[in-house]
Design a protein around this nucleic acid. Structure first.
Length: 426
DNA sequence: TCTTCCATCACGT
DNA sequence: CTAACGACGTGATGGAAGA
């Protein structure tokens, strides 16, 4: 008997590209607005980081899609203007948006860097009719922040999210349960949240092509092919059912990781260890910044044939130390890497615990203490100057395979998920 | 036999 | 021109290992 709720889902249109453009215009009001020309935010193809992270509407008209290789995008659209990404800008922009949204309700869930859910049930009466309030939010974001958002309105998170995806940009849509048959059921199955490529294939092999067909399908049959839990979930979703509360993401991360695609394949252990050090340093810094410890380390590889593998090990004690993580990662790598040339190396930590205050432990040697102090100092310098202000001596010696692995993503702090936008976001 | 661990897959941004 | 593309975090799953 839960009461009817009122949920808004806010989704930034072409987030990275919009934010990039807003920032350029702020610095130089005469600058070209990237949103008005075929453009994209992308990686560096020469370092094998070449994919489209976000695209402008004009670029979309050329068939450029998010996630595709830059070379492919340039074939479709030779004049595509590609600009590099600046995560600090996106984090700041995201924060400004959240701040504005907080004026409407304290019950906010930041879903990703460019999406948020608002539970407006208790506060809507302060502002007016839902549609008018949503339009007001859009207008304020446009005028005060310089970019546009879509707002989806419904009585649960799933439907609000589906609604914000409808027509873009700068639009408000409702998708209340009564509207589901008309607005959601005709959509291809792939557009349902949590139905990806693999599920799509299975569902289509069962003759299910639209969300409506899924909604009316036999749950038992679904469970047989998709697994019980997942089958129930998407069957409920297809019927517009979702009772998840809007919850502030206050919970601890379950893990912290860092991985990088190298500018060239690596088959030498020495080189691989340098990469691991760089990765361990980032991960360790993030653990320390969040005052958490990990008890598990996992090394991931992707070889030159794109085959992925991983190997994990438990620590004997919880740690946030770069060196401990690094040493364990090296041990694991030795243990399972057959020296097949790899194009990607990663470290993931797990078994996170909250014991923030570093245990100045019983067995800690003087060397350990010094090392910890040094790591703290490195963190401090990095947080002041960012990026590569400090490098380890061992890292300076080699020519760098990774360019900025050590500084990447550290600013994301506590956030869940990664800030890249999707194809649906335009 | 019941739980936990491990590696992999799938999905989202 | 047979492929091909990033960097994350989370949850499910099925088989192996362990108690």
């Amino acid at each position: 008997m839960e009461r009817e709720r009122l949920i808004f889902h806010i989704d930034v249109n072409s987030a990275f590209l919009s934010w990039e453009s807003v920032d350029r215009l702020k610095k130089d009001p005469t600058a070209l607005d990237l949103r008005t020309i075929p453009s994209a935010v992308g990686g560096d193809a020469s370092k094998r980081h070449g994919i489209v992270l976000a695209k402008s509407t004009p670029a979309k008209r050329y068939g450029v899609t998010t996630g595709e290789p830059l070379a492919q995008a340039l074939k479709k659209c030779p004049h595509l203007m590609v600009v590099p990404s600046h995560f600090e800008i996106y984090v700041a922009s995201s924060r400004r948006l959240l701040k504005l949204l907080e004026e409407y309700t304290p019950d906010i869930e930041k879903f990703s860097i460019d999406e948020a859910f608002l539970d407006m049930t208790e506060t809507i009466h302060l502002f007016g009719e839902p549609l008018a309030v949503a339009d007001g939010i859009r207008r304020r974001v446009r005028e005060e922040l310089g970019f546009t958002v879509n707002v989806g309105i419904s009585s649960n998170k799933l439907l609000a999210k589906m609604a914000s995806d409808f027509e873009k940009p700068d639009r408000t849509h409702t998708l209340f349960p009564a509207e589901v048959p008309e607005k959601m059921w005709p959509l291809p199955i792939r557009e349902l949240f949590l139905v990806g490529g693999a599920a799509q294939k299975k569902l289509e092999s069962l003759g299910l092509h639209t969300i409506g067909e899924l909604a009316h399908s036999d749950p038992e049959l679904l469970a047989l092919h998709l697994g019980g839990k997942y089958a129930r979930l998407i069957h409920d979703y297809a019927n517009g059912l979702d009772s998840e509360p809007v919850a502030e993401r206050t919970a601890m991360n379950k893990g912290y990781g860092n991985r990088i695609t190298l500018s060239r394949d690596v088959s030498d252990m020495e080189e691989a260890r340098h990469v691991l050090l760089s990765l361990a340093e980032t991960v360790g810094a993030r653990l320390r910044a969040d005052h958490v410890l990990c008890n598990q380390v996992c090394v991931e590889l992707r070889d030159w044939r794109f085959h992925s593998s991983s190997h994990q090990g438990a620590l004997h004690f919880a740690t946030d130390s770069t060196s401990v993580i690094y040493e364990e990662a090296c041990r694991l790598l030795e243990e399972f890497w057959d020296r097949t040339p790899v194009r990607l190396i990663g470290i993931r930590t797990g078994k996170i615990s909250d014991h923030g205050f570093v245990q100045m432990s019983l067995f800690e040697t003087e060397q350990d203490r010094k090392r910890l102090e040094m790591e703290k100092a490195v963190d401090a310098i990095r947080s002041r100057f960012g990026t590569d202000s400090v490098k380890r001596a061992s890292f300076l010696a080699k020519d760098s395979l990774v360019d900025h692995a050590a500084s990447k993503h550290k600013h994301l702090g506590n956030q869940k998920g990664d800030p890249h936008e999707t194809d649906t976001d335009l």
